[in-house]
Design a binder for these strands. Structure first.
Lengths: 115, 115
DNA sequence: CTTGACCCTCACAGCGCTGTCAGACCTTAC
DNA sequence: GTAAGGTCTGACAGCGCTGTGAGGGTCAAG
């Protein structure tokens, strides 16, 4: 399928689909005239990228994760990197939450002192 | 005092001090030769900017907040905007934490499914 | 064969900082 | 007077996306 259709199906903008490719996350075939030609597998890949991105992952990180994901369908293939990356990501998120919580405390303190 | 000294005293880089000025958060005097000349009040302002920034605020937001802060010393002067802005900021942080928590849940789910 | 919808590549812009570099002047002290 | 160190302005770069626009092919239907 062409890029417009894939975009409609996945809800990912055409711009972003091309960007994924530039970042090495997708490698669609090309027609003679140069049009990108995506298969069903690519569609699934895009869905996963979207999902992982929605979980706050960088494309760079997703890229590292994709080899563990591309193979079979319903769940993830547990390759060596997988657990490691996921664990790192959770740690990263925890840090961010921690930072935000501290900020929240500070601001809430200010707010309380203004009462 | 000159910018270098202020930088040393506050721990804010020279670059950032100039940036604050460009954003309208500081307005130091100038010597005849064009050097910035900061007073004690400015130093205190920089400390506050740093603190509020550390609490996750945008310079833009801090700028709106400063008029409520500049006047007296130990705490904040409760001007009309103050409560409103602080409340907004706390709300913003809560949203971000919420988003991150959702991401965390998703990733933790993946991680669990890999076990 | 023309029109419209789609596709291509390349590149600029913006978010909110922050570092760094270039080219040039000022100040202090020897 | 010279040298070192501080300051000035201006501008480019990077983070990780994302939209938008220009300029130009492609494909299908009428």
């Amino acid at each position: 399928m062409k890029i417009g259709e894939l975009s409609r199906r996945t809800g990912v903008s055409v711009r972003m689909l091309r960007y994924y490719e530039g970042e090495g996350l997708l490698a669609p075939l090309r027609t003679n005239s140069g049009y990108r030609d995506y298969g069903t597998a690519e569609e699934e890949t895009v869905r996963r990228i979207k999902m992982l991105g929605g979980a706050g992952m960088t494309l760079e990180t997703i890229k590292r994760l994709l080899p563990c994901v591309r193979n079979n369908d319903p769940a993830f293939t547990p390759c060596n990197e997988l657990r490691k990356i996921l664990t790192q990501q959770v740690g990263l998120i925890d840090e961010r939450i921690e930072t935000l919580s501290e900020s929240r405390t500070i601001l809430a303190g200010f707010l309380a002192s203004v009462n």
